[in-house]
Write a protein that binds this DNA or RNA. Structure first.
Lengths: 260, 260
DNA sequence: CGCCAAATTGACTGGTATCAAGCTACGTGG
DNA sequence: CCACGTAGCTTGATACCAGTCAATTTGGCG
C-alpha cells in the first residue's frame, strides 16, 4: 500500500533518505530500469571513449587524496569506499561506489583528489582521461547528458545520506544503510536478500556517524526483531528475509518505536 | 604557523570540513582568486547564454520539491537555503547558496527538483534553460569546464559538511558553520568580520544536526570565549573579532578542550 | 500596548559514546 | 597438531553530551 514508485504526482514523496534507487517492492520496473540505465551508460562510454580497463584487488587504491587529477574512473564491477581525511586527522568514509558509478568527479574543481578510493573486493575499473571526456562530450550530446546525470545523481545521494545522518537515530541509520546497500545490489542484478557487507562494523559506524559498538548493538537488535538475519559463521554476511518489512522500518518513524 | 594556503605539496591538508574556500588569513590571494573566478563565471554565462534575470525577496521560493526540472539558476546576489523533506516528514536544510552558486544541479538526474530553494533575503537570480545550457556547452568548451567545476565544487562541499556533522561535537560544528559562512562572504568581497546570519537558530541547528537550544548555548559559549561577539540588539548579527582564532578553534581538536 | 516568533537559560532525561571484558575466526610459527 | 597473536565482533556498565521540557526574556510589528 505504498504510493506507486513510478508516475508520481509528487515525486519527492518516494525519496527516502539514502534509499532512492530502490523500489524493489510494488513492481520491479524501476529497479530494472535503473539496471538498464547503468548497462547503457557503460556501453556508451565503452564505445565512445574506449577506456582503459583494469582489475584491482581488495584494499588497493585507485587514487589517493592530494594526487593530481586528470582522469576519471567508472566501476564496471566490484565495490569501492571513499575515505576522506581532515587536516586534524579525523578520517571518514564519505561514499560507497558500485557498478556503473563514477569515481573522481569531486576532484575536478580542485585539480586533485580529495579522498582515497579503496577497493572493497576484486573490481574492474575503467579509466579515462578527463580532457578526452570533455572533448567527447562536445561531440556526443548523449554522453554529456549521461555525465551530468551521473554527477547529479551523486549530489542527490550525498544529500540523502546527510539527511539520514542528521535526522535519524542510530537504529534507523543502520537500517537505512542496509536498505540502501540491498537496493544498490538489486538494481545491479545481484542478490539483495543475502549478501556480504564488505565493511567492518567500524567502517559502517564511521560512515553513519556512529561507533562500532553502536552498529553492532543495532545489528543485534535488528536480528532479534527478525528484520535481518546473520549467516551462521561470518556475521558480515547478512540475510534480509523480508525486504518490504525493512523498507517499512526505514520509512516509518512509528515502526521503530517498539524494539527494546 | 599554519601551512601556507596556496602552493601546497599535499593540497588536502588545508581542507578543513566545510571550510575549503576560505583562506583569509596568511595571504588574501586564494580568497581574491575565488572572487575572480566567480566574477568570471558570471560574466561568461551572461555573455554566452543571456540568462533571464529576476529579483526575488526573502521567503520566496524559486523552485519547490517535485516541480518539473528544465532550468538551472545562478545566484548573482543574495542568499538561499535548500530544504529537503523526507517521505516521513522530516525536514532538513541541505544546503546554502551564495553569489556565483548554481541551483538545481541535483534535479538533473531525476527530471524534477528534490528540494525547495528559498531566498533568505532579496536576491538576484539568473535563470537559463537546461537544454540551452547543454547546447552551449557543446559549442563553448570553456563553459562546459565551468559547469563541471561548479558541480564538482558542490560535491566537495557536501562531502565536507557530511564530515563535519559526522565527526565533530556541537561546539565545533557551530564554529565550523560560522567559519564557513564568513569565508563565503569574504570570498565574495563582503564583510566577513561582521554580518547577519540569515538563519534562525532552529535552521542552523537543523542544518548541523543539532537542536536550536544547543545552537543557542554554543553561540553563548563562543561569545563568552570571545571567539565571536553579538551585535547589541539583534543577536542574529555576529562579529568575528579574530578570524584566525576562530579558524584555529575549528581546526584544532585541542583548542576546543578548555571552554567550560 | 499586546501579541507572537525567536532566543536564552535551567533542570532533567536519554541515547550514544566510552571503557572494559570476553568471544570467535583465522593465520602463523613452533 | 596446538599455542599464540591479532583483528573483528559482541555485550555490559558507566559517563556524558545533546535532546527535551519548561520558564522567561527579548525584539518586531500591527
Amino acid at each position: 500500500m505504498q504510493a506507486p514508485t513510478s508516475q508520481l504526482v509528487a515525486p519527492h514523496i518516494t525519496r527516502g533518505a539514502l534509499a532512492r534507487p530502490v523500489a524493489i517492492d510494488s513492481r520491479g520496473d524501476a529497479c530494472a530500469d535503473e539496471g538498464r540505465r547503468i548497462a547503457d551508460t557503460l556501453k556508451l562510454i565503452d564505445t565512445v571513449l574506449a577506456p582503459k580497463r583494469r582489475i584491482v584487488h581488495a584494499g588497493e587504491m585507485i587514487y589517493r587524496a592530494g594526487e593530481r587529477f586528470n582522469q576519471l574512473h567508472i566501476l564496471n564491477s566490484g565495490f569501492f569506499k571513499l575515505i576522506s581525511m581532515s587536516c586534524d586527522g579525523r578520517e571518514q568514509v564519505v561514499g560507497l561506489r558500485f557498478r556503473g558509478d563514477w569515481l573522481g568527479f569531486s576532484a575536478i574543481s580542485q585539480g586533485s583528489y580529495g579522498c582515497d578510493a579503496i577497493a572493497l573486493d576484486t573490481a574492474e575499473v575503467w579509466t579515462l582521461r578527463y580532457d578526452a571526456l570533455l572533448q567527447a562530450c562536445a561531440e556526443h550530446p548523449a554522453l554529456m547528458v549521461v555525465v551530468h546525470e551521473a554527477m547529479s545523481r551523486e549530489m542527490m545521494r550525498d544529500r540523502d545520506s546527510l539527511m539520514a545522518i542528521c535526522t535519524l537515530p542510530a537504529d534507523a541509520r543502520v537500517a537505512t544503510f542496509l536498505h540502501y546497500w540491498a537496493g544498490a545490489l538489486a538494481v545491479r542484478g545481484l542478490r539483495a536478500d543475502q549478501f556480504s557487507l564488505r565493511l567492518t562494523r567500524a567502517e559502517i559506524g564511521n560512515y553513519l556517524g556512529l561507533t562500532l559498538e553502536t552498529v553492532s548493538r543495532v545489528l543485534s537488535r535488528l536480528a532479534r526483531a527478525e528484520l535481518i538475519a546473520f549467516n551462521e559463521k561470518s556475521r558480515r554476511d547478512i540475510c534480509i528475509p523480508d525486504f518490504p518489512a525493512l523498507a517499512a522500518y526505514v520509512e516509518d518513524r512509528d515502526a521503530r518505536a517498539g524494539l527494546h
